[in-house]
Design a protein around this nucleic acid. Structure first.
Lengths: 210, 210
DNA sequence: GAAACAATACCACTTTTGGGCGGGGGAGGA
DNA sequence: TCCTCCCCCGCCCAAAAGTGGTATTGTTTC
């Protein structure tokens, strides 16, 4: 049984091309296509679509907003972005909004079909350039986890501290005396090269110890 | 001209299979393969490798460490992880360590070759399941910056607190009395719905207020 | 078997923190 | 104009945080 799909794309010629390309396949059936996504919810209801190909630059409501709207009502409907934009903002906004894939418009027809199949199998297809951006994003953000030679117990105490527990509460949770907690924290502070709890919490989160 | 590649894989049979599979292609030439990556740097020097297929679970030094080492010396050599592990930690650690791709071992031979070609063209190939994890990571991580209606002054005080300053130091930096600092922090705690400094620091960092 | 370390605990002590209550001056909107 | 909000300052007080020292037990490591 072919997957029911709908298309949002404001360029009429491209829209028709996509329709032709994708309807041809046994795996997909294009139920409808629209020049904008303002009435996306109704469109999904009428067509019982399982898969959506979504442009970003459209009149009225842009694709990122569209995804957000669709996903809040139909979280299980797959949405694949299909756009010329390859800037960080649009890519990451789309992903955060709930897109299940991000394809650039220079994707070959064959690859496009393969990617749509992939998304129906639970994958998250993206164009190579997009994938590269995503990888870069990971490498810039997080400071490496240095561990700081914390013992398991110390990590446990530190985690509880980060959660906002007082010494007394930590002692209680760990079933040890409050003085032991103090001792642990003292050691932790030395190992992290900090002087107080707030600093330790900041460092712990920033270095992904917790 | 085929791309020179080397393989790190501790399973002898799989290593040989990979060698056969990849050497067959006109686009790749397997220069060597090794059961561990302790001498990766020398291996690259000797073979002038441009591309590396890297297992994770290996004796001596694991693949994530390996990538880190390789990338710190040869940032332009492409490294693709090839492993059975599909847990968040290994995936994200690998990416952060500098991996250019992450393929699971259930990848079909054809797909494997295609992915290696993709990485040589500047892409970042990953198995569908991995891609999905990556997408999920974006959606869970960045909690929206809610602002919490903090006034400029309160933000300033909060920032100083996050940096590990004591009340007294904050008072000094802001040239106000310590009691004013207390008052500000009390208002901040209320606005963030927390009860103490450590919790406020955690929330501030997690919500990207600072 | 000694040395090192993790984890536990107690004591004494100082400083910091956080909560509560009060009030004043200035800027901006209903 | 009055009201609200931001920013500022002060005092009191109890609780929590942080520092120092000493010591015991078990495990691991050399």
């Amino acid at each position: 049984m072919p997957h029911k799909l709908i298309i949002f794309e404001d360029n009429a010629r491209l829209r028709q091309s996509l329709e032709l390309l994708l309807n041809d396949e046994k795996t997909f059936r294009v139920m409808a296509s629209y020049p904008d996504c303002r009435n996306a919810i109704e469109a999904i209801e009428e067509t019982a679509a399982e898969l959506i190909v979504m442009d970003i630059d459209m009149p009225g409501m842009n694709g990122v907003e569209g995804v957000k709207m669709i996903k809040s009502t139909y979280p299980d409907v797959k949405v694949v972005m299909h756009t010329v934009f390859d800037d960080d903002t649009r890519i990451f906004d789309s992903i955060c909004a709930g897109a299940d894939g991000y394809l650039l418009k220079n994707t070959s027809p064959l690859q496009l079909i393969r990617s749509l199949e992939e998304v129906m199998e639970g994958g998250a297809p993206m164009s190579p350039f997009v994938a590269q951006k995503v990888f870069q994003h990971f490498r810039t953000q997080p400071i490496l986890n240095d561990d700081f030679n914390l013992t398991p117990r110390e990590k446990e105490v530190l985690e509880l501290l980060v959660k906002g527990n007082s010494y007394k509460m930590i002692a209680n949770t760990c079933s040890v005396s409050i003085d032991t907690v103090k001792r642990h924290l003292q050691n932790i502070y030395h190992k992290l090269h900090v002087n107080c709890g707030t600093e330790a919490v900041a460092k712990a989160i920033r270095h992904r110890i917790v």
